[in-house]
């Protein structure tokens, strides 16, 4: 089904998989024919997606549709699961990240990740943020490290609240603060891309609002991809949205257009609440 109207990005319907996706100029991350298998079970079928830079892209869809699986492909976290197998190609800045010569540890420093349940290390707040830069050798001496930690915490919107107790355990903070600490930890390694897997689902509305505010500030300097269950959140924070359904990426486009005028019937059913 081809829709003739043109927007900023053109719409392309690929006939084989009936996926509707828009073309993105100068994308940060490009994915081609990504398939993920857990043992014999296939979780993702030929996902093709281009993520723009300096913008927030949200992945939405019902439970078990593969959005978290796709997200974890971008920083190769699926490799930590022994039975998982990924085929296809993902390029970041035109560099194939599944190239066997690529150091996956360095990749994960360049692509930060924030998880659903806040998981700070059981160390001090300072240590939490300092650990990444230290093992990657990003700073030369102690003063540089302290500066980096302070900057990261400030960018994460947490500095004011913790500057007096920076050597106290990170696990002593509230849920929202812990999640912002995890964000600070992720940006301390100076990544280009931040992946967020349902970052606010364990937080109360006020903490959620703070984290969303943070996201919108950060996307000026980082490329952010978030997986979310909350369509309202996707509408609030993201510029582009991709809808996943049972392992297929069904529709991808501007957030406004996806939510106001979805093209595919499955998208329509999801957005308008006929299933969830």
């Amino acid at each position: 089904m081809v829709k003739g109207s043109l927007t900023m990005d053109q719409q392309v319907v690929s006939p084989e998989t009936t996926t509707i996706r828009s073309v993105v100029e100068n994308p940060k991350i490009t994915s081609k024919d990504i398939c993920v298998f857990y043992g014999d079970k296939q979780a993702l079928f030929d996902v093709n997606l281009d993520i723009p830079r300096f913008a927030v892209t949200s992945l939405i869809g019902p439970s078990g549709c593969g959005k978290s699986t796709y997200l974890r492909c971008i920083n190769r976290m699926n490799e930590t699961i022994p039975i998982a197998r990924v085929t296809g190609e993902i390029k970041i800045d035109d560099q194939d990240i599944y190239d066997p010569d690529l150091d996956v540890v360095e990749l994960r420093a360049r692509v930060g990740m924030v998880f659903q349940k806040p998981n700070p290390f059981p160390k001090s707040i300072f240590e939490n943020v300092a650990y990444g830069p230290r093992i990657h050798g990003l700073v030369k001496d102690k003063t540089d490290l302290e500066e980096l930690v302070a900057t990261s915490l400030e960018r994460a919107g947490l500095w004011g609240e913790v500057k007096d107790r920076i050597h106290e355990p990170g696990t002593g903070l509230s849920g929202g603060q812990q999640q912002r600490l995890c964000i600070a930890r992720a940006i301390a390694t100076k990544p280009d891309i931040i992946l967020m897997d349902e970052p606010c689902s364990a937080l109360d509305p006020i903490a959620t609002a703070k984290v969303e505010e943070l996201m919108m500030e950060l996307c000026e300097n980082y490329t952010i991809v978030i997986v979310t269950h909350s369509m309202a959140q996707a509408q609030r924070v993201s510029q582009k949205t991709a809808f996943f359904h049972i392992g297929y990426m069904v529709e991808y486009g501007d957030t406004k257009q996806i939510f106001e005028d979805p093209q595919d019937k499955r998208t329509q059913d999801y957005i308008f609440g006929r299933f969830g």
Partner: peptide, 19 residues
């Protein structure tokens, strides 16, 4: 979750173990 967090920050397997 601790192992995932450490891997996500870019620690190698043996760094995750030791640290």
């Amino acid at each position: 979750s601790i192992r995932e967090a450490a891997l996500g920050v870019g620690a190698s397997k043996h760094q995750v173990m030791l640290h």
